[in-house]
Design a protein around this nucleic acid. Sequence first.
DNA 1: CCCAGTTCGTAAAACGATTTCTGAGCTTTA
DNA 2: TAAAGCTCAGAAATCGTTTTACGAACTGGG
Lengths: 337, 337
Amino acid sequence: MSGPRVTIREVARAAGVSQAAVSKVLNDGYGVSAAMREKVMRAVTELGYRPNAAARAMRGRSHTIGVVADIRTPIVAQITEGIEEGLQGSSLDILLAPVGKAPERQRSSIDAMLNRNLEGLILIVPSLPRPELEALGQSIPTVLIGRHGGGRHFDSVMDDDVAGAGLAVEHLVGLGHQRISHIAMPMGKFRRPSVLPQTAREDGYVIAMRDHDLEPDVITTDYTEEGGHTGAMTALRRKKPATAVFAGTDMVALGVLRAAHELGLRVPEDLSVVGADNIPVSALPQIALTTIDPAGKLNGSTSTRLLRERIDGRRNPVTHAITPSLVVRGTTAPPRE
Amino acid sequence: MSGPRVTIREVARAAGVSQAAVSKVLNDGYGVSAAMREKVMRAVTELGYRPNAAARAMRGRSHTIGVVADIRTPIVAQITEGIEEGLQGSSLDILLAPVGKAPERQRSSIDAMLNRNLEGLILIVPSLPRPELEALGQSIPTVLIGRHGGGRHFDSVMDDDVAGAGLAVEHLVGLGHQRISHIAMPMGKFRRPSVLPQTAREDGYVIAMRDHDLEPDVITTDYTEEGGHTGAMTALRRKKPATAVFAGTDMVALGVLRAAHELGLRVPEDLSVVGADNIPVSALPQIALTTIDPAGKLNGSTSTRLLRERIDGRRNPVTHAITPSLVVRGTTAPPRE
DNA sequence: CCCAGTTCGTAAAACGATTTCTGAGCTTTA
DNA sequence: TAAAGCTCAGAAATCGTTTTACGAACTGGG
């Protein structure tokens, strides 16, 4: 099954035609007769020919798209699945550059992909400044996932996190809750990074609360389990403690659950908790967290669709928002009183 | 920052030398004077030249290694980190092909990487039959992670799961436990797939129990949360129920914890539980699972080292076993009686 | 001063595909 | 029937780099 690779030249010889003919049959195929196509195809399958992607990439198309993502984030796996699904029947391969959160690392990975003449790039929640992304979009078809705000030279796919937060609040209000706290992330000193999902969730929470004439109560901590714990401690030690908490992330929600446990509060009887992201842990029976599902697969397949449009020549930017859904599990119930 | 890419030809012109000279400076550099190196380097940085990887891949080296892995597995992230670490200072890039468990999918991803003339491949727990892996190893430097057994044409890096299981049993015995059950995975009808970590863990458990003159008690179910639940129900409803359970996987251990909870058993007072894999969930304060840590990062960096040796010409196969460590958290304690 | 042996550098040939250009053979049209 | 138009196929140029082969200039020893 190994041995020296079979090249287009050998296929051509076997079929008794020229290299150009073989190439034309395999690609667009302008000006090839049925007889020739048949001959070539037989030789191709017989020899088990697979075109050398490196050679392809140099001239013409590389038949490959690149995905840049932090694979430590659980949702990346689902998004990737969606991306692959969207690639069905397109002869496009997918290559992933693993990165961390460091912009420097992301930059070098993107560079590496550019060096390979990929046909397009999908960036999952990149932490690069917008001007850089715009420049990138000008040099290669680019789609961003999970970054709010849109741009002029790339497409964007994201969850409508404002609506998602609304769903959470609706659900809790519908159960009869009035004092609903939200645990959010600090925004940094200088400017509000409005491109982040966190910000949108906070906004959505505030808007939905106001819609119901309820007083928003935003508690700012880290987006970690520990942050959720300290945030919840704040919310639950007030003289009129919250009866429900909407955490900005499932991880935060886990910290909230721990805090509740430590304070002797039962969930959901004494306290309702809603998270966001629907990470795998949340589905475990022991956790059974009510949460907002970000539809990772749909994000992936949608971004593939947009990317293919862009590869096919579209220039104008498209922004696609996906409406998340609420997954009701065991951490929400009507309040006691 | 975009515009047409700058090629080696332009660098050569700017430096007033030939293309070959530039190439030699950038690579091995045989027969280049200090003066020439200096000239070329200046032109390179000045023009911001970055060699086109596609062109490189066609002739000579591609400066890239490929990783084939199922990114849904949490440990892959850590392994990848280790791989990157091992790549420091080597001018090698890393590209990841995301796959599922399906052999068909893995095959096509490997093909895709072969088409790109990569310098080497790292396969994380591939589910491909051995002959195929041997053939692969003959056509490209290959290292396998997490697959027991070794081979003739590739290197293997794995955890010493036998030793790991031994650690778990030692720990429990040291605490005073005698009735320790193990929840394992079914082996399939026809032959024992001895290449899997699960099998090694089961073997290690049996050996360690015998060493202490204790009767092994292996319960076979699925390697899932649900499997752990049903397995634990079996182990805990005996007339002389187990006082400790060694689960083959953290996910299984979570199911055990749930079963314990449902039966009104407190952990660790009434039941000790040890898992294996140290997935992120296990570290959460509410779970605090005692488990065996597979040293993912070390697996990664070791495999990179071996791969580089192979790329540099080594032919004989190397198998490297990593001794895992026990992470003691809150689910283990001395038995009641 | 000549010759062999180094050094340093370049021209040109790969690598394996795609694409452009050209021409051979037919068919249609005037 | 000659000119024009089409269709199909191949020869050759091209992509950007590495590598090979070779020549020029310099060195040092006799």
